[in-house]
């Protein structure tokens, strides 16, 4: 059985160029779910997590992403063959673009960079009020700001009352409250909808 520590060792070595990528699957799943079982340093409640970074992508150079954090910190994020990427759907490193917002979780390297286990691009998680509903969009009010949620055919889904997700968003309650996970379209008030959670 592969230990959780093995995965972190692999990611660390991969970031340092010392791991044989072909052998990665021998360490077990490299899916995001496995990353969250990885053993990391204990983080005191209320304090920053050194295994986490956020910001907007300012450059991409090979496997190194530079992202300017909201606090002004310049984060160096190293992707590896073991990194999982999300941008509306699971994707690959080629989806990373300058201007994207990101959250990353991984292993802090001795040089200060973050070897990423998982990288979420433009992801948003919003409680919102449904203003109007159309076949191709859900218009939302989030804390007084209007956001257009685009329905992406074959991708956008709704979860009604905790039941399995369906692609039919027609029961999203106009005038009601929903929770939405989606992908922000940079520098707009628009998102692409991944999942709408609604009680009907």
């Amino acid at each position: 059985m592969t230990s959780q520590f093995d995965r972190r060792q692999f990611l660390t070595r991969a970031a340092l160029g010392g791991a044989t990528v072909v052998g990665a699957t021998a360490l077990g799943s490299l899916a995001p779910e496995a990353a969250f079982g990885a053993v990391g340093p204990q983080v005191a409640p209320g304090t920053p997590d050194p295994s986490f970074a956020e910001g907007r992508v300012s450059s991409v150079d090979g496997s190194m992403i530079l992202a300017k954090g909201s606090d002004g910190t310049l984060n160096r994020i190293q992707t590896t063959s073991g990194t999982s990427f999300w941008k509306l759907t699971p994707t690959t490193a080629s989806a990373v673009q300058v201007g994207d917002g990101l959250y990353a979780r991984g292993v802090r390297m001795p040089d200060g960079s973050l070897a990423a286990d998982a990288l979420w691009l433009n992801i948003v998680s919003l409680d919102a009020h449904v203003v109007t509903l159309a076949t191709d969009a859900v218009h939302l009010d989030h804390q007084g700001n209007r956001i257009t949620g685009h329905v992406v055919k074959g991708v956008s889904a709704a979860v009604y009352n905790g039941t399995p997700a369906v692609t039919d968003l027609s029961m999203v309650p106009v005038g009601g409250h929903v929770h939405v996970v989606g992908a922000w379209l940079p520098d707009t008030a628009e998102i692409q909808i991944s999942t709408v959670y609604a009680k009907v």
Binding site: P48, F52, W86, Y103, R105, H179, Y197
Partner: peptide, 21 residues
């Protein structure tokens, strides 16, 4: 019933951010 909202760093320590709820 929704009883807690975690920050992105706290939530991502126990689940994928794409999980939503």
């Amino acid at each position: 019933n929704r009883i807690v909202d975690l920050t992105a760093s706290a939530f991502s320590a126990i689940a994928s951010l794409s999980s939503g709820l």
